[in-house]
Amino acid sequence: MTNLGHRPGADELSRWVGGTLAVGAVASFATVAVGVVLDLGSITAAGLLLLVLTPMGHLLAALAAFVRRREVWYALAAATAVALLLGAMALAAFSATIGG
């Protein structure tokens, strides 16, 4: 990570990550709003799930951008974060099983 730091100027990393964040935020907000207005708990729950999956989406977008730009260290960091998020889900499921 020798090149860690802020570099002004637009690039595909900002566009891809920002775009995924925007789509995730708008889609989940709209889904939750429909669920709340229609008083449908399952739709609201689907919107909440979409919301908490949004970080996974923009990390994958960042991973794709780093791979495309051949920024190996950042690609590894993004892949590790994605793997840890997946691990967090597995750990949460395990914790739910043993913790009730």
């Binding site: 802020h6 637009a10 920002g18 964040l21 935020a25 919301l51 970080p55 960091a77 590790t80 974060a81």
Partner: peptide
Amino acid sequence: VVATSAGAAALNVRARRADVRLGIALAP
């Protein structure tokens, strides 16, 4: 927190106010 972060970060990342590389380095 995820909701408010997603909304603001979408703008901050596209405007390059947020440093995605720094965030990714600390994310793990």
